[in-house]
Design a protein around this nucleic acid. Structure first.
Length: 587
RNA sequence: GGGCACGUAGCUCAGUCCGGAUAGAGCGUCGGACUUCUAAUCCGACGGUCGUGGGUUCAAAUCUCACCGUGCCCGCCA
């Protein structure tokens, strides 16, 4: 609705400016500050003041006078406040917003007939997911949801690194060490079970005596070579380790939840011949050089100091080589490809982008979302290999425990009489606990680094998931109560019935939701939706305070407000779904 | 040394892409509101040289340049 209003305002302003013989290329359309009542505003008068030779307020008044709302569906009154031209929405804007927002699909944008593959997480399958890695599935899954909601046809992919050196080390370690030499696993789960071998192996390679390490390295190299040569037995050995660990990790991702449509293995691109094929084409490029027995791309003419090695001197491919084949495959199968990836991969990714361009691809179809690392207080990093950091499973457990304690605490002085049983307590604890962790991460700009603080992530008060979830629960509560009393939301609403500031502010915020989705999708910034939910919650709470619904003075107002509550519930419910945060019916 | 990112209140963050209305929240501190649709809520007070300095502009947190600080990267690892 807001998007339509905005484009109508553009048309109306353009027409007014043209009628005044003024340029129409810069309309200065913006959203006014919260304490200004207009829905859309323009600072165009500043820009025209010089041209016209009159002070901005005078110019604004002239433009406003020339702007004719008739013929526009959503443009109501046009007014000025000093140098600003302010546009107020029409009655049908109000009525239509309340009506359309009551639909389950509110905010979902029309199909764009465009397929997008979103690759995210793609963490090495080497062990339990720790909090440092958690930013990727959380942001990645939110990007998937935002794009889906914005009308794209989205597939979520996890690119499995099953051909790298680390996996070879892992396979060797798994086959070499005996369980009796390992510590107890921290959890009864496949990834915790197997990571013990990986850690033991790395420790051995670091501290074992030279001769033994050399022998181990030879075995590891043999595994790498086996993969490169297409040795089925080696694929199978590696696959056993990778699949087992990945199953454990997937269980953790499911808790968030972060869901994948497909796990694409690197080895698939080796076995299919795609990697060899791209190597041939890379070698044929003008930028290809053969130095120190390794094939590389000299990208210095394209702004890269460092050569990109794509074939080792022993003839094996590198991660980036396989990733080039991987991206060619994406280009063949999708209209767009988005990768959510840590900023430490930025250089490599830019080289990959450049290489794809040299291979003749249109890399405008390729987008990346880079995120910064998550650190522990005190500047300590997190490492699977060394076993430092906070496991995501532990964080989620703790979050749910705290949420459960919170629900139980509130049980006694709970006003609402809805017979909350044990399953209900558990349901709320999981929705709130998991939601809090997820929201804490998804609500921040990915480019900013995060210092992970347990207490802050699990603060259930304002600016957290529970704060927003509570709004949804409150709306559900009112609607449930109304249904019990046999009161139905109004099907069509007389805008005059919703004319307090609180009602109008809430309505305007509801109307803006599709625009928020559109912007978040365009910029690949799901945190914008989180920012939106926060504003939304504030507006709803103001409405809740100011406007009694069930005890409103007359039946028409009651039903009109109820319709507004229904619209609010769908809006905040869908906003939470876009973020991947549960929307509880009660709390 | 070079490249990229970040720097907004004591702390955690929006706002920066696309320059415009007194720079907004939350946490913390202090003071208030539950016989009224759920107090995981709300209201109020206190708190800011938007890292520093220059430039562009009628107008700069936002654009631009320099500098400072922090992080990441600069491997025949991923």
């Amino acid at each position: 609705m807001y998007l339509s209003l905005r484009s109508e305002v553009e048309d109306a302003l353009e027409a007014a400016l043209a009628a005044l013989d003024l340029p129409t290329d810069d309309l200065g359309i913006e959203r006014p500050p919260e304490d200004v009542d207009a829905a859309v505003a323009s600072s165009v008068a500043f820009r025209m003041a010089g041209e016209v030779g009159a002070p901005p307020p005078k110019v604004a008044a002239d433009i406003a006078a020339e702007t004719d709302p008739t013929g526009y569906e959503y443009v109501g009154r046009v007014d000025t406040q000093g140098p600003y031209v302010n546009v107020f929405p029409s009655d049908s804007y109000v009525a239509e917003t309340v009506e359309t927002a009551q639909s389950e699909a509110y905010g979902r944008l029309p199909d764009r007939d465009t397929s997008v593959v979103v690759e995210h997480t793609s963490a090495n399958p080497t062990g339990p997911v720790h909090v440092g890695r958690a930013r990727n599935p959380i942001v990645g899954d939110a990007v998937v949801r935002v794009l889906d909601f914005a009308g794209y046809d989205v597939d979520a992919h996890y690119y499995v690194n099953d051909a790298g050196r680390q996996v070879a080390v892992f396979t060797w370690a798994y086959e070499t060490f005996d369980e009796s030499d390992l510590p107890e696993p921290e959890r009864e789960k496949a990834d915790y079970d197997l990571v013990r071998y990986y850690r033991k192996g790395n420790e051995f390679l670091k501290e074992g005596d030279d001769e033994a390490v050399e022998a181990a390295e030879a075995e590891i190299d043999a595994i790498m070579q086996g993969l490169e040569d297409g040795d089925e037995a080696v694929y199978e050995r590696v696959g056993t380790v990778v699949d087992t660990v990945l199953d454990g990790m997937t269980e953790t991702f499911d808790r968030l939840p972060a869901e994948f449509d497909e796990f694409v293995k690197e080895t698939r691109l080796m076995r299919s011949g795609a990697t060899d094929d791209v190597v041939e084409r890379l070698r044929a490029l003008d930028e290809a050089v053969y130095e120190k027995e390794a094939w590389q791309l000299d990208l210095s003419d394209h702004g890269f100091d460092k050569n990109l090695v794509f074939l080792r001197s022993d003839g094996t491919s590198l991660y980036t080589t396989r990733d080039l084949a991987h991206h060619e495959w994406k280009f063949d199968n999708y209209d767009r490809a988005v990768t959510v990836i840590g900023e430490d991969h930025k250089l490599t990714f830019n080289q990959l982008d450049q290489s794809l361009e040299l291979l003749g691809y249109d890399t405008d179809q390729l987008d990346q979302v880079f995120y910064s690392w998550v650190n522990l207080p005190g500047g300590e990093g997190m490492s699977t290999r060394e076993g430092t950091g906070v496991d995501l499973d532990d964080l989620l457990d703790e979050a749910i425990d705290r949420a459960r304690a919170e629900v139980e605490d509130r049980l006694d002085d709970r006003l609402r009489d809805d017979d909350l049983d044990e399953a209900g307590v558990e349901r709320i604890a999981e929705q709130v606990g998991t939601g809090a962790v997820r929201y804490d991460i998804v609500s921040k700009q990915p480019t900013k680094s995060i210092t992970f603080e347990f207490e802050r992530a699990l603060d259930f008060e304002a600016q957290s998931a529970p704060y927003v979830q509570y709004v949804h629960a409150r709306a559900c509560g009112i609607l449930g109560e109304a249904a019990d009393e046999g009161v139905e939301p109004a099907e069509s609403v007389d805008p005059d019935l919703l004319d307090t500031d609180a009602e109008r502010d809430l309505l305007r915020t509801i109307a803006r939701f599709p625009a928020a989705v559109d912007e978040a999708a365009a910029e690949l910034e799901p945190h914008r939706v989180a920012t939106y939910t926060r504003t939304f919650a504030e507006q709803f709470n103001a409405f809740y305070r100011e406007c009694p619904v069930l005890t409103a003075d007359d039946p028409e107002t009651r039903r009109a407000r109820l319709a507004l509550v229904a619209a609010a519930r769908e809006t905040v419910g869908n906003a939470l779904r876009v973020l991947g945060v549960a929307a509880p019916d009660s709390m």
